[in-house]
Simulated scan of single mutants.
Amino acid sequence: MTSAADAIVSLYARHAAAYDRQRGRKLMEMRWLDRFLSLLPAAPSVLDIGCGMGEPIARHLIARGCAVTGIDSSAPLIALCRERFPQQDWAVADMRTLSLGRRFDGLIAWDSFFHLKPEDQRRMFPLFRQHATEGAALLFTSGPAHGEAIGSFEGEPLYHASLDPAEYRALLAANDFAVAEHVVEDPACGGHTVWLAQRR
C-alpha cells in the first residue's frame, strides 16, 4: 500500500497523455459544481487542487466566470492546462506542502485528495483553511468508509484511501468548516462520495 501511495506523483506524470485521453469530458459532477458555485460570490477565485489537465471541471468553472488557480504534481498535466487556458494560473505543486500565500472563495479537490495516505489527508485540512476566505466553499471526494484500496491505471497500481466519515466531519469542524451537504456513493454522480462544506 505504501509503495503504491508513494508512486502516485510519478504515475500521473508518466501517464499524463493517457489520462488526458481517458478522462471523460461529460460533467456528471454538474449538480455538485453548481451547488458549489451557488455558495460563492460573483466572479469568484477558485483553487483547483489536483486539477489534472483542467478538463472538464476547470473548464466549467472558467465558463461560469471563475478565476481559477490550478495545482497538480504532474508537470505534463499542468503544461496542458497552460496551453488550453492561458489566462488562468497554473502551478506544479504537491498539495501536501501547499503554501500559495493567498486565500480563495472556493476550493475543490475532486478525485485527487483521496490518493493521499490517511495521515496526509489529515494534514490537508489546515491547508484548506489556510487557503480559504471566510465563507469559502470546499468541495472534495472521498471513499465511503475508512480504508485503503488499490485500483489500476495503465497497468500500474492506483492508490486510494479514505478516513471514516465521522473523522472527516471532525476535521472539517476543527478547521472552521461546516458541512453543507454530504452524499455517500451518489448514484447521480457515478457513485462518488462527495463532501461540500463552507468555512464559517
Rank of each mutant, 00 (worst) to 15 (best):
Q198M: 06
R200I: 08
R103T: 13
R84P: 06
E29Y: 09
D34Q: 13
A136N: 05
E119R: 03
A132V: 01
I49H: 01
A42Y: 07
E29P: 08
L100A: 05
F114Q: 04
R96S: 06
L80H: 08
A166K: 11
A17L: 13
D89R: 15
E154I: 09
E83D: 15
A197H: 07
G50S: 10
H60C: 12
R199Q: 10
G106I: 01
A173T: 08
E83G: 11
T141G: 08
M95D: 05
D120F: 01
R123A: 15
R82P: 01
K117I: 02
P76L: 12
L127A: 07
I49K: 01
W195G: 07
G70M: 13
L158A: 09
E29L: 05
S73Q: 14
A178H: 14
A42T: 12
Q88H: 13
G54V: 02
A16N: 12
R25S: 14
D94Y: 05
L39S: 01
Q88E: 14
R169N: 04
F125P: 03
V183G: 09
E154N: 13
D111I: 05
G190R: 13
V184H: 01
L37A: 13
H115L: 05
R122S: 07
R96F: 01
G190I: 11
L61N: 00
N175S: 03
H131Q: 03
G70T: 13
P76I: 13
I150W: 00
G135H: 02
A79P: 09
G151A: 11
D120N: 06
P86Q: 12
D105R: 02
A149C: 00
Y159A: 01
A93L: 13
N175K: 07
V179F: 05
S112C: 05
L37F: 10
L80I: 15
W32Y: 08
C51D: 05
P126R: 02
L196G: 00
G54S: 06
E134I: 07
Y168G: 03
W110F: 13
L100C: 09
G52N: 08
L171Y: 01
H15S: 11
D34K: 11
W90T: 07
L163K: 00
F36L: 05
A7E: 00
G143W: 01
S73T: 03
F125D: 05
A4Y: 00
F125C: 02
D105Y: 02
